[in-house]
Design a protein around this nucleic acid. Sequence first.
DNA 1: ATGAATCGACCAATCGGTCGGTTGATTTAC
DNA 2: GTAAATCAACCGACCGATTGGTCGATTCAT
Lengths: 201, 201
Amino acid sequence: MPPIPELEAIRKAQILEAALKTISASGYANVTMDDICRAAGLSKGGLAHYYRSKNELFVAVFKEFFERIFQRSKQTMELYENPVDKLLSFDWLYDRNDPDVNVGYPVLFDCMSLAVREKEYRSLFHDWFENWVNLLKDAIDVGLKKGIFRNLDSESTARAISSVYQGIATRWYLDNESHTTKWAVESFKKAITGLLSSNNK
Amino acid sequence: MPPIPELEAIRKAQILEAALKTISASGYANVTMDDICRAAGLSKGGLAHYYRSKNELFVAVFKEFFERIFQRSKQTMELYENPVDKLLSFDWLYDRNDPDVNVGYPVLFDCMSLAVREKEYRSLFHDWFENWVNLLKDAIDVGLKKGIFRNLDSESTARAISSVYQGIATRWYLDNESHTTKWAVESFKKAITGLLSSNNK
DNA sequence: ATGAATCGACCAATCGGTCGGTTGATTTAC
DNA sequence: GTAAATCAACCGACCGATTGGTCGATTCAT
């Protein structure tokens, strides 16, 4: 019987952590199970005991990843009271020293290219979008109730706002020599305040 | 000696076309040289005669791809006179029946995940961004001169506009059940007109 | 006969997954 | 109370399949 009852949960967490870092560093397509074994301090057979296939492990890794990002987003938004501040609270996405950012972007891009063809990954994306959009939507609804915003469809505006964050992030990360952090922050603020002002019919 | 002098150019074009379709359909990581040989109607040795390694071929494919997208963007913009119309002329990006769209998005996502780790691909991205941004920047500069826009930095605004297109495209493509074409088109119009109106200090 | 164009068998390397085996703690049998 | 059986945890050698690249052979126009 198990030495400690929580051993399985501990091991799985260790493996996920090791796999996440390895995938982030080398890229989904280049990572081998051996790499992950080494990073996790386990043998091939040992790892197979917890995750029976590469695909099973990787799906678990990406799931864990999105959960982390979501929690981070939620916690950061909660630091603010004003709906506008909440909606503009994602500047941590453009901090090159942030550990979530450094690990996260490579994983995110990998996941996107996987999502193109595999519905399991598309579904992970969908859930993440949904969670993110709901955070934003709630803030917009509060703003509408308080009269800060007018004539907005909160859901489609929320989707647009998160898309703007992601679009700017893509540039900022993949071509950082031409896209400074200053540009990224100013741009998302202008774009999002533009989306929130109801001068569109 | 070559049967026809242009044979090399013809073959290379055939190979690039076949490779582009194959990569789009199966994904960079899953495509084998055999797949491309079959699609191009050539043997392994025959293909090796024109492209000596997988990497050499793939870089050429992605280069060709970005060139196509750029030409398409340029031509579509030229259909319009008014700077605002030019800047909003990219709704073809959100047409699910467009062949460039169907082939392009999978390739684009693959290229992004490659660009994270390989500077050769990052450089392709950079060049594409630069070309795209310059198209937009020229239109904005005309608008500034004509007095249609005020208080804008044309370059950083151009970068923001193309980022908005790309961010919305990501959602629209990867999670199309929750992101309709109508949403995509309305959203980019609102976001971009917001960026162009100078009510930001 | 020279060399570009093309072929396809073959090689070496890689990788995911399997499987028999070991360890050590717990449970069961007596 | 102890010997035997059991089982989770873990190991690493091995297998089968895949794949990128090579190379000698073949064709054919010049």
